[in-house]
Computed example of a mutant assay.
Amino acid sequence: MKGFKGKTEGFSLIELLVVLMIMGLLSGGLMIAASRAMASAEAVRIISDLRSIKVACLMFSMEEDAEINDPSTFDITCLETYLDRKIQAESFSLYGNEEKLFIGCGPIKKKVSRYIEQRAEENGLYGSSSSSEEPQTPYVSGEEPWVWIRVM
């Protein structure tokens, strides 16, 4: 070719495409890792909230000398003075009878429920989507999984 004086400055189209492909792969891997970390953090927050509410229930029953086994007379909003931060009361539910009281949190995303299930035994957790029977494993049953902790 006449007039071509050698290599011009700059990057070729192939080089730019290779760099963009590498950046895409790295950002995809980062998104997957971030998603897992967020699900694990959410599971830890839920377990922490349940444990805090359990302690608040016990403190409330001792200070007020009240029976908290009956969910029809006891409400989670009574515990706000015993908790270090405000909780979303609509995310928590009570289930119990004369002998046992459970506090539940839900509905929980399925990815988060897998992380909770891994920590269930060490934290004394149960799982169910129905409050018509005593909460028990597995954690994912139906469309709205819940996790429960026994208070009394």
Rank of each mutant, 00 (worst) to 15 (best):
V19H: 00
F4Q: 08
G142F: 06
Q136M: 14
E143Q: 08
M31Q: 10
S40Y: 10
S131P: 12
S113L: 14
G24T: 06
V19S: 07
I46D: 08
I14Y: 03
P107W: 07
L13D: 02
E9A: 15
K54Y: 01
L26P: 11
G29S: 10
M62S: 15
Q136H: 13
S91H: 13
E122A: 14
E121V: 13
V151K: 00
N97M: 07
K86D: 11
R119Y: 13
S91Y: 12
I68H: 00
M38C: 10
A34D: 09
G29H: 04
S40K: 14
G10H: 03
P138S: 04
S130Q: 05
M152S: 15
F102M: 07
V151S: 01
G10N: 02
V18T: 06
R150K: 13
L50Y: 00
G28T: 09
R150C: 10
G6Y: 03
P145L: 05
Q118F: 12
K100W: 05
F102E: 02
I149Q: 05
G28H: 01
E15S: 00
K111S: 15
I103A: 05
G142E: 00
A120W: 00
G127Y: 05
P138A: 05
P135H: 04
E9Y: 13
N123Y: 10
S132Y: 00
P71D: 00
K54W: 00
A43W: 05
F11G: 03
C105D: 03
D75Y: 08
D49Y: 10
I76V: 12
T8C: 11
T81Y: 06
L50P: 09
I68L: 01
F4Y: 11
M21W: 04
D84K: 13
M1L: 12
I116M: 02
G28W: 01
C57Q: 04
D65A: 10
T137G: 14
A34Q: 12
S131H: 07
K5I: 12
G28L: 07
G24S: 04
N123A: 09
D49T: 10
G96D: 02
A120Y: 01
T8F: 13
A120G: 08
K110Y: 02
K2G: 12
